[in-house]
C-alpha cells in the first residue's frame, strides 16, 4: 500500500463535543496503516493537549492521557498554532510533554511538539495529500 502524507487538524475543545475524542480514535487506527502522519492543534483544539486536565466534575471520560501514546505509534510531528496559544493566554509550558524515542539517535527521548505560526501551518498543510479536519 502506498504512503501518503496525512494531517489531522484538531480545532475544537476536548469536551463539549465529541470531535476531539473521535479524532484521536482515527489517528490511533490510522497508525496501523504506516502513513506519514502529522497532527495540528489550532483554535480551541489547543486545549486538547493542555496539562492537568480533570473531568471529575463533568462526568466525562478524561482521555488526555491517550495523547501520550502517540509517540509509541510513530506519530511525532505535532504542530501547535502559536497564535491560538497566545489568543488564549497559553504557552508551551501549559501543554503536556508529548515525546517520542528517536530510533536514529540511540532512542533519545525528544519532544514531538513544535510551536509554529499559522503561516507555517498553511505551508505544511499545502504539502499534505490528505487533510482531515475535526
Amino acid at each position: 500500500m502506498s504512503t501518503k502524507k496525512f494531517i489531522y487538524l484538531n480545532r475544537k475543545a476536548p469536551y463539549g463535543t465529541v470531535y476531539a475524542l473521535e479524532s484521536l480514535e482515527v489517528v490511533l487506527i490510522a497508525a496501523a496503516f504506516e502513513q506519514d502522519v502529522s497532527l495540528a492543534f489550532i483554535d480551541d483544539g489547543v486545549y486538547q493537549i493542555i496539562k492537568g486536565q480533570n473531568t471529575d466534575g463533568i462526568g466525562m471520560k478524561n482521555f488526555s492521557k491517550t495523547y501520550h501514546a502517540l509517540g509509541d505509534y510513530d506519530v511525532n510531528k505535532i504542530y501547535v498554532s502559536a497564535e491560538s496559544l497566545e489568543e488564549r493566554g497559553l504557552s508551551v509550558d501549559d501543554l503536556m510533554p508529548l515525546t517520542y524515542e528517536d530510533e536514529d539517535d540511540d532512542w533519545a527521548e525528544k519532544t514531538s511538539i513544535k510551536i509554529i505560526s499559522n503561516v507555517q501551518l498553511t505551508k505544511i498543510m499545502s504539502e499534505q495529500d490528505v487533510c482531515l479536519s475535526f
Binding site: F6, V26, F33, L132, S133
Partner: peptide
C-alpha cells in the same frame, strides 16, 4: 465497518472531501 475504511479511502482516492 471500522475506521480503517476511512484511512484506506484516503490512501486509495485522489481526493478525500470532508463535509461538516
Amino acid at each position: 465497518s471500522g475506521l480503517g475504511q476511512l484511512i484506506e479511502a484516503g490512501i486509495q482516492s485522489d481526493r478525500l472531501v470532508v463535509f461538516g
